[in-house]
Simulated scan of single mutants.
Amino acid sequence: MRNWPLFDLSITTPRLELRLPSLDDLDELADRAAQGIHEAGYMPFMFPWSDADPAERARSTLQYHFRAWGSLAPEKWSIDFVVVYDGQVVGTQGLMATSFAVTREVGTGSWLGQRFHGKGIGTEMRRAVLHLAFAGLGAHHATTEAFEDNHASLAVTRKLGYQEDGITVHDRQGKPAVTRRFRLAREDWQESPGYELHNLPACLSLLGLTS
């Protein structure tokens, strides 16, 4: 798409493709949300959107991506990929930043359809956006945050070499809950073989960077 080159941006890994979603991709992602992301009685998200009924989860998934497309600007952006594994959209992986040209700092966020948990996909898709951040965009730091009872997310974070960066106490559905913050410096990032970026140069100006 000539006037929105982000739709041509993708990352490939040994098993995955991460790409900006088409409308058909978003429909499939919404199906994954409706089918379930986590076990009942547990909430890994700051905003409990996944606690809604399946149809509402599907709609809110679409709306989130539409808002991200419409609000993207060089000063503040979120690139939200769909993750394709074995020909199926299985989840989403985001990379976001504010004043990236100055801060050179990104954050990440993701979810994966529950039936695809336990296959190492979460680690591989996080590695993919770290490759984009450090190898493609020249980031200096990547940050992430998760509730301390989100053991799967914390395991991925620690596996990838992030360092602890403090805690925050939140109101989670009327009860206090602690999140742990982490930071990964460029010098501590380890590049992995088989990760490739496609069609990035045309996107740089949309992210506040020059080619």
Rank of each mutant, 00 (worst) to 15 (best):
T210W: 07
L154C: 03
L154K: 01
L137G: 11
A142K: 03
L95F: 06
P5H: 07
S205L: 05
R181V: 00
W189T: 09
D31G: 08
G122P: 01
I37D: 01
D24C: 06
F45D: 14
L200P: 12
E56C: 05
G138E: 08
M125L: 08
V169A: 11
F116S: 04
L26D: 05
P193Y: 07
T144W: 00
R67C: 03
G120W: 01
A135K: 05
D31A: 13
W111L: 09
Q88E: 15
F116N: 02
D188H: 15
G113R: 05
F45C: 10
A97W: 00
R104L: 13
L29E: 04
P5R: 11
G70V: 03
T92W: 01
R104N: 09
V102E: 15
E56D: 14
W69M: 14
R172K: 11
V84K: 12
A40V: 07
P176W: 07
V84E: 13
E75T: 03
F47C: 04
G118C: 08
R59V: 02
S153K: 05
R57P: 03
F81S: 04
F134V: 07
L112W: 04
E17W: 03
K159I: 01
S78M: 14
D24R: 13
T123A: 06
S211G: 08
H170I: 03
L207R: 02
